[in-house]
Amino acid sequence: MHARIVTSHIQVGKIDEAIQIWREKVIPTLKGAQGFKSGYMTGDRQTGKGVAVTFWETEADAAYWNSSGKYQEVIAHFAQLFTAPPSLEQFEVFLQV
């Protein structure tokens, strides 16, 4: 299994709007993606910092999310809310508890 971790900074006071976008736009897109297992959106309302973690069956499935243009499509929904461009990292999951 592989994890994709997106760290972002949302304008303080806009977290609920970001959550709504996740519910309406991101979740339906993720659920239709090959190899998608699960995901979490976490954050700090005081600072606007957020971390979204998605889990994928294989490294290829996780990498395809980027090359297919779906990542850029999803990120575009948040463009007006970001205070800086998000960062993306991908890791192999060694252990699940």
Rank of each mutant, 00 (worst) to 15 (best):
M1C: 03
M1Q: 07
H2E: 07
H2N: 14
H2R: 13
A3V: 15
R4F: 01
R4I: 14
I5M: 07
I5Y: 00
V6Y: 02
S8F: 14
H9F: 02
H9A: 12
H9Y: 01
H9Q: 14
I10A: 01
Q11V: 10
Q11N: 14
Q11F: 02
Q11I: 12
V12N: 04
K14E: 06
K14V: 01
I15K: 07
I15D: 01
D16S: 09
D16H: 08
E17V: 11
E17Q: 14
E17S: 05
E17C: 02
A18P: 04
A18R: 06
I19Q: 12
Q20P: 00
I21C: 02
W22Y: 11
W22Q: 08
R23M: 06
R23E: 15
E24C: 06
E24T: 15
K25A: 07
K25I: 05
K25V: 09
K25H: 11
V26L: 11
V26Q: 04
V26C: 10
I27A: 07
I27Y: 03
P28G: 00
P28Q: 02
P28V: 03
T29Q: 12
K31M: 07
G32W: 03
Q34T: 14
Q34Y: 00
Q34N: 11
G35E: 04
K37E: 13
K37F: 02
S38M: 14
S38W: 10
G39Y: 06
G39I: 08
Y40D: 04
M41K: 11
M41C: 14
T42Y: 02
T42P: 00
T42G: 08
G43R: 13
D44C: 10
R45N: 14
R45I: 15
R45S: 13
R45L: 11
R45C: 06
Q46V: 13
Q46L: 11
Q46R: 10
G48W: 04
G48Y: 03
G48L: 10
K49D: 07
K49V: 09
K49G: 01
G50T: 11
V51M: 06
T54N: 12
F55S: 02
F55I: 15
W56I: 08
W56S: 05
W56G: 04
E57M: 08
E57C: 02
E57L: 15
T58P: 08
T58L: 13
E59T: 02
E59I: 01
E59K: 15
D61S: 07
D61M: 09
A63K: 15
A63C: 03
Y64L: 10
Y64V: 06
W65R: 10
S67M: 10
S67L: 09
S67V: 07
S68K: 11
S68M: 12
G69D: 03
G69F: 05
Y71T: 09
V74P: 00
V74A: 10
I75T: 09
I75A: 15
I75C: 00
A76P: 01
H77C: 09
H77Y: 15
F78P: 04
F78N: 03
F78E: 04
A79Q: 15
A79N: 15
Q80F: 03
L81K: 09
F82Q: 07
F82L: 12
P85T: 09
P86S: 05
S87R: 12
L88S: 05
E89I: 05
E89L: 11
E89P: 00
E89V: 11
Q90W: 01
E92D: 05
E92Q: 14
E92W: 06
V93K: 10
F94D: 05
F94R: 12
F94K: 13
Q96M: 08
V97G: 12
